[in-house]
Simulated assay, not measured.
Amino acid sequence: MVKYGYLTGGLPPNHCSVQSGDCQSGNPAIEPYLAAHNVILSHVTAVDIYRKKYQVMQGGKIGIVLNSIWYEPLRNISSDQSAAQRALAFHNAWILDPIMFGEYPPEMQRILGPRLPKFSLQEKEKLQNKLDFIGISHYTSLYAQDCMFSECNAITSQTDAFVLTTGERDGTYIGEPTAMEAFYVVPSGMEKIIMYYKDRYDNIPMFITGNGYPDANDPSNSVDDFVIDSKRVEYLNGHLSSLTMALRYLVFLFMKFYFI
């Protein structure tokens, strides 16, 4: 929501750049990072309060839920592979790295420099409380193309990462398009985003908190079309199969570590 509110202007307070939204105010080179910084500080404050006042009594867990997009290199070249890693950092690790490590992702620090806000010593102390779990809302995957030495994208945050994101390569979509723009059916992304979080955040517990298929409201569809809902069934089956692959691999690693 930070990007839509302070970059593209699609949501309140409708701040954007002239190039990336239909609004007249905002500074997308700075505002999205300030807004995200305040989101992170709000989260860690809530965690701090819960840890001190309620967790022991309630026996509960506290975490954070993120919309998690997986990015594939557009081309099988090192620059696009690096671009995919930058896209993952700017979209997913942007929020999680400060919570888990007390600092923004190195990929962001290298590119943004002083535009990234700093955490005070007191704030870093609160960040030590970390999380009990990550909630993963994963719906789609995209390609990432390196733009480090070319102007291939006008949207500021993606230009900051020097990445063009697209769902198409050589006239072929990354997965079947859906009724929602830039939303494709790519089941393999489920396994890959889980393994990304596992490796980056030391196998922290994870929950799948969001996944689903956007369908058009077509008045010409019959009642049977809505009831059978075959596209959604296929989507969920593919993503559950991908999730099973990730679980099998994690079980294999567990067995190898403890019993071999």
Rank of each mutant, 00 (worst) to 15 (best):
D22V: 08
T8S: 15
R75P: 00
A84L: 00
L131N: 05
N237Y: 09
A46F: 03
V223I: 10
I77E: 06
N76C: 05
D218K: 01
H37Q: 09
M57P: 09
M206I: 06
F119L: 12
K256M: 01
Y54L: 15
N237G: 13
F101I: 06
K126E: 06
I193Y: 01
P187F: 09
C16M: 06
M1D: 11
N76K: 07
Y6I: 06
L41G: 08
F207W: 12
Y213F: 13
E191N: 12
I69K: 08
S79Q: 08
I111C: 00
F254L: 02
E151W: 15
M1G: 08
P12F: 05
L253P: 00
A87P: 03
V65Q: 05
T244V: 00
L66D: 08
R200V: 09
H43P: 08
E31W: 06
S82Q: 12
L116H: 03
S141R: 04
T209V: 10
P187Y: 12
I95L: 15
I49P: 00
I30P: 02
G5V: 11
A89Q: 03
V47W: 02
A216C: 09
G238L: 07
D218W: 09
Y4N: 13
D80H: 05
V251F: 02
T172G: 02
T244C: 00
L96R: 08
K198F: 12
Y33L: 08
V223L: 15
V65N: 07
I49G: 00
I134L: 15
S220A: 13
N221S: 14
L253I: 00
I208A: 05
D229M: 05
E72P: 02
S17L: 05
S222N: 13
S42Q: 13
L121G: 03
A246D: 03
L116Q: 15
A93C: 03
K53W: 12
F162H: 12
P187V: 07
I174E: 04
A36T: 06
P187D: 11
M148E: 10
S17C: 10
L142G: 01
L236W: 07
G113K: 15
S120G: 09
M190L: 14
T165E: 08
L247Y: 02
T8Y: 05
I204S: 06
S17I: 05
W94G: 07
G175Q: 02
G210A: 11
L253H: 00
A89W: 03
L236D: 04
G113I: 00
P32K: 08
I95F: 15
G21K: 02
Y71S: 02
F183I: 01
A161R: 11
Q81D: 00
S20H: 07
D170W: 06
M1L: 09
G10T: 03
Y143R: 01
I77L: 07
R115F: 05
A93P: 00
Q128S: 14
T172M: 12
D218P: 04
E31T: 07
A154E: 15
Y196R: 13
V2D: 14
R200S: 14
I208K: 02
I111T: 03
Q58P: 11
